[in-house]
């Protein structure tokens, strides 16, 4: 049985008239790298902020390590790392003082790792945090989140606004500890997280559209290109699991959302008749997100 380190049930949150979350459910298995994906305004950041008690839900509950997010005890917080794009760090402190200050709060603080991270991320000890660039501040936040070897690392759009070099440094630092921790990451940058993500949750309009193991999702979503003997058309009835059908001359393309390689050729022929060629290729995360998001907007389940 999978042990979920994060569990959210029926989370609702409103800001004025805007409903940011409408009964959000999701769970993050321990040891996973869980990517929470959604369009702008889907409610990813609100969900993450509720998890670490920066915001309280109006309805529903969230637990981290079995502790209610609204009353996270220091023992649990000491095992959580949190890095956010707009995190407010104590700007008047120097980097060295910031680490000195935090050190006392974490029993698992790793001095050697601190030195290694500060060195690897080239953090200038004497600089005030408020005087750092956005990228440098994110690096400080990440180092200050990794250095006590947290059990859960929550990253909220960590790569937004960063240049390629900084992204690489952050990813390298993350990957060095990837085996030890569970990561919950929200990001628009699918390229950065695709290689390491094990689970993915797609959010739309404050709800979870689907959450799935990355390997399962990758194997069931296929971009299909069928070359027919005659000019292509979309026949009726059309299978509900085949989305975004398009025709170009003799070619018909669609997205198969329930791909089964063993029976797929037979299924295609039964729907389309004789075919000259069938190509079913895996989709990158970005494309998967696009399909799921467009389907959600059209009111279809991908």
């Amino acid at each position: 049985m999978t042990n979920n380190i994060v569990q959210a049930q029926g989370l609702c949150r409103r800001f004025g008239r805007h409903e940011a979350l409408r009964g959000l459910n999701f769970s993050v298995p321990e040891g996973s790298v869980y990517a929470l994906i959604g369009a702008n305004g889907a409610g990813k950041t609100t969900a993450v902020k509720i998890l670490v008690n920066l915001i309280e839900p109006m309805q529903g509950t969230a637990t981290i390590m079995d502790a209610d997010s609204r009353t996270l005890p220091p023992t649990v917080l000491a095992q959580i790392g949190y890095v956010a794009e707009n995190q407010v760090l104590p700007g008047r402190l120097r980097i060295r003082d910031y680490f000195d200050y935090l050190r006392g709060f974490y029993p698992s603080w790793d001095g050697a790792l601190e030195a290694s991270l500060r060195d690897r991320l080239q953090l200038p000890a004497e600089r005030r945090i408020g005087a750092l660039s956005h990228g440098m501040r994110i690096k400080v936040a990440l180092a200050a989140a990794l250095v006590y070897r947290p059990r859960l690392l929550i990253l909220d759009e960590p790569f937004a606004g960063l240049d390629v070099l900084v992204r690489d440094e952050l990813m390298e630092s993350l990957l060095q500890q990837a085996g030890e921790l569970t990561v919950l990451v929200t990001s628009h940058d699918f390229g950065e997280i695709e290689g390491v993500t094990t689970h993915v949750g797609f959010m739309h309009d404050g709800r979870m559209l689907l959450e799935e193991h990355m390997a399962d999702l990758g194997s069931r979503l296929r971009e299909v290109r069928v070359t027919l003997e005659q000019p292509a058309r979309v026949p009726e009835p059309w299978p509900r699991e085949w989305l975004e059908a398009r025709t170009f001359g003799n070619v018909l393309t669609f997205i198969d959302t329930r791909h089964a390689p063993e029976t797929f050729g037979e299924r295609v022929r039964s729907v389309l008749g004789p075919v000259r060629q069938i190509d079913a290729v895996p989709m990158p995360l970005r494309a998967q997100f696009g399909v799921i998001e467009r389907a959600a907007r059209a009111g279809v389940t991908a």
């Binding site: 902020k49 920066l54 000491a78 959580i80 407010v88 104590p90 709060f105 974490y106 936040a141």
Partner: peptide, 18 residues
């Protein structure tokens, strides 16, 4: 205000500080 209370992005809230 070294550790501001209002807002949704404070560092101290996510630290093990009672």
């Amino acid at each position: 205000q070294q550790d501001p209370v209002p807002g949704f992005n404070q560092d101290w809230v996510v630290r093990p500080i009672r």
